[in-house]
Design a protein around this nucleic acid. Structure first.
Length: 354
RNA sequence: GGUCCGUUCGUCUAACGGUUAGGACGCCAGGUUUUCAUCCUGGUAAUAGGGGUUCGAUUCCCCUACGGACUACCA
């Protein structure tokens, strides 16, 4: 059997929230259960959203939780570097390879051009405004420009992006460990930007390239990524690489009302949504953390593990070792879980009295 | 709007065609505790709705409703 290699790949755009911690935890449990490797990769391809201290926070939080990684930022490993900003040179050649093979193209449209196109489509009563087979022919790109003009624009240093060329009417199948077969018609996808005008790759390109280069066997991530999984599969196909096995985890929801759990809910309902206290470097705003609120990491992890997964027995108290042994992706639920601060308190109370 | 995912007590969930639908949190009641908390005991409460399939549906299929995610040169 192929070696299990999984990764947790957060963006350093702020403190890691409990949903992220749970994703890291499930990756860790899965890796340990299969005697594989768990790595930490920092996806900092958006320089405009970089937040100082966020990366350090993520590492400290994982440490406090007892979620130890084998390779990654701050630790090194055979596939270093593990910070995407330091791997910048790697990505462009892959994007260009796709262009050479006719699977991607240069686009010179300005943000204003894109806005205009979207408005135009909206006015026509069509709600979906995508850069796709229906619109790409009207835009400024290497598909509509002559080879000579494209080359001239490139040579003159005009800003450009590289977009994937999505095929028409191709059924893409995502085989998900949690959701089963998910089928999507490629015509629904849009020509996503793979390489940005600032010289950095987008998430989609960097993620696929790195997962392949780092020999990731299973991609275990939040459900918010399910809609882009077909694009990722297509990218693996384009490169001729074997895709990893996917597992999209259900989301953590607000305790009351509806929607994804957010930082605001913690402030509003009076419970931490972060493992450790965080002070926003730009506003000075402080967000509470479980560690500072007196929670034991064992209680915090135990509580998180049971949010979206269950052992199939009536056991509720688990040490990290027990979690590793009991964990199974088949037992991960399909629906989102509302976070319950009361249950979190109960777990901590239990561990505190031990 | 479109695409995709989902739906068992208030909440987290078990039951992978046959159970009095189980457990935990919360809540309520009683007991213990000098008091509060703890702790113990008991109780409360659910298969979204409608069609099928089947001898039999929580479980399989379809429709509806509801919820969620995504729909950026963000991840």
């Amino acid at each position: 059997m192929k070696e299990v290699r999984v990764r947790f790949a957060p963006s350093p755009t702020g403190p890691l929230h409990i949903g992220g911690v749970r994703t890291a935890l499930y990756n860790y449990l899965f890796a340990r259960l299969h005697h594989g490797k768990f790595l930490l990769r920092i996806e900092d391809t958006d320089q405009s959203r970089f937040v100082p201290g966020a990366e350090e926070y993520i590492i400290e939080a994982l440490n406090w939780c007892g979620i130890h990684y084998d390779e990654g930022v701050g630790k090194g490993g055979p596939y270093a570097p593990y910070r995407q900003s330091e791997r910048k040179e790697i990505y462009k050649q892959y994007a260009e390879q796709l262009i050479t093979e006719g699977k991607a193209y240069y686009a010179f449209d300005t943000p204003e051009d894109l806005d205009k196109m979207r408005e135009r489509i909206k006015d026509k009563g069509n709600a979906m405004a995508q850069y796709d087979a229906f619109t790409r022919g009207q835009m400024v790109n290497s598909l509509t420009l002559s080879a000579l003009e494209t080359q001239q624009r490139l040579n003159s240093g005009e800003p450009y992006v590289i977009r994937i060329l999505i095929p028409e009417n191709e059924e893409i199948v995502v085989n998900d460990l949690i959701r089963g077969k998910v089928m999507v018609d490629s015509s629904r996808l849009d020509d996503k930007v793979l390489f940005k005008s600032d010289g950095m790759p987008t998430y989609h390109l960097a993620n696929i390239v790195d997962d392949h280069l780092m020999k990731i066997s299973h991609v275990i991530r939040g459900e918010e990524w399910l809609p882009s999984a077909p694009l990722h599969i297509l990218l693996y196909n384009y490169f001729g690489w074997e895709p990893p096995v996917f597992a999209h985890l259900p989301l953590l929801l607000k305790p009351d009302g509806n929607g994804k759990l957010s930082k605001r809910d913690g402030d509003r309902l009076g419970f931490p949504v972060f493992p450790l206290r965080w002070t926003d470097p730009s506003t000075g705003e402080v967000s509470s953390g479980y560690r500072e609120a007196g929670y034991l990491p064992e209680a915090f992890i135990n509580m998180l593990a049971l949010l979206g997964w269950n052992p199939g027995t009536e056991q509720e108290i688990f040490s990290m070792q027990e979690l590793i042994q009991a964990f199974s992706m088949e037992k991960v639920g399909k629906s989102g879980s509302k976070f319950d601060p009361e249950k979190a308190k109960w777990f901590n109370h239990f561990y505190l009295s031990q």
